[in-house]
Computed example of a mutant assay.
Amino acid sequence: MEMEKWIHLELRNRTPSDVKELILDNCWSHDGKIEGLTDEFEELEFLSTINVGLSSVANLPKLNKLKKLELSDNRISGGLLVLAEKCPNLTHLNLSGNTIQDLSTIDLLKKLENLKSLDLFNCEVTSLNDYRENVFPLLPQLTYLDGHDPDEEEAPDSDAEGYVEVLEDDEEDEDEEGYNDGEVGDEEDEDEVGEEEKGQKRKREPEDGEMKTTK
C-alpha cells in the first residue's frame, strides 16, 4: 500500500496533532521519498518507516517533538544533514540496513545534539577499520552505537521492556478476568446441578417409601 494511503488509515478519524506514534513499515513510497506526512503531526514522538523503499529523507516535515526515528532496511546513502533541521530533538536513530558507506555521511549527524543512540547494523560503513573507535569521537553526544557504549556494554532496552510489561499485564488481567468469570459460571452450574439432584432425590425418596409400604 502507498505511504500516503497508509497514513490516512493510521489516523482512524484522528487529527494529525493527536498522533504521538506512527508506524508505516512495509508500505511503499513513490520516488523513494516520504509522502503524506506533514508538519501537522506536531506531537509525533516516534516514527517508523522500515522497508518502505526510502532513498532520501529530504521530504521529512518539521517534527520538533520527534525522539525516535526508525529508517531501517531502506536505500538511504546520504542527505542526513536535514535531520538536524527537521528533528532537532531526536534521541534515537536507526539506519540499519541502508547503503551508508563512509564516515563523512555519519559526521553530518553531529548537529543532532540530543542524539544518544545510533544503529548502523548491516551498513557498509561498519566494515571499515576502527569503525567504532572513529564514530564516537565524530559524534561525542552518542551514548550507544549499534546497541553498545564505548566500553562494549550493552544498552538497556528499558523502553521496549516497559512496553512488553504493559502488554503482559493487560493479558494477565484479561486471563484472570476470564478465569474468574469461568469459576463463577462453574460454581453456578454446579449449584444448579446440585439443586436438581437434591430435587430428584426428594422426589424419589417418597416413591421408594410407597413401594415399600405397598409390599
Rank of each mutant, 00 (worst) to 15 (best):
M1F: 11
E4D: 11
W6L: 15
N13G: 08
T15M: 13
P16C: 03
D18A: 11
D18Q: 13
V19E: 00
K20N: 09
E21R: 12
I23E: 05
I23Q: 05
H30W: 07
D31T: 11
L37F: 00
L37S: 01
L37T: 00
T38Y: 06
E40Q: 14
F41W: 06
F41K: 07
E45Y: 02
E45Q: 14
L47R: 02
T49I: 15
G53N: 07
L54K: 03
A58I: 13
A58V: 13
L60H: 05
L60S: 04
K62W: 07
L63S: 02
L66S: 01
K67T: 08
K67E: 12
L69W: 02
E70W: 15
L71T: 04
D73H: 06
R75N: 14
R75D: 12
G78K: 04
G79S: 06
L80T: 02
L80H: 01
L80D: 01
L81V: 05
L81D: 02
V82R: 03
K86F: 07
K86C: 08
K86M: 12
L93S: 01
G97Q: 03
I100E: 02
S104T: 12
D107Y: 11
L108W: 02
L108N: 08
L109T: 03
S117T: 14
S117I: 11
L118K: 05
L120M: 03
L120N: 00
L120Q: 01
L120V: 04
N122I: 11
E124Y: 03
T126S: 02
L128T: 03
L128Q: 09
Y131K: 02
R132C: 08
V135H: 03
V135F: 05
L139N: 04
L139W: 06
P140A: 09
P140W: 06
Q141N: 10
L142C: 03
L142A: 04
T143P: 00
Y144F: 15
L145P: 01
D146G: 05
H148L: 10
P150M: 08
P150I: 09
E153N: 13
A155R: 15
D157Y: 10
D159I: 15
D159V: 15
V166R: 12
V166D: 11
L167S: 01
E168S: 09
E168F: 09
D169L: 14
D173C: 01
E176G: 01
E177S: 11
G178L: 15
G178Y: 13
N180T: 13
V184P: 00
V184T: 08
G185W: 13
E190V: 14
G194Y: 07
G194L: 11
G194H: 08
E195W: 09
E196Q: 14
K198P: 00
K198C: 07
K201N: 10
K201T: 13
R202V: 09
E207S: 10
E207D: 10
G209Y: 12
G209E: 14
E210R: 14
K215A: 13
K215V: 13
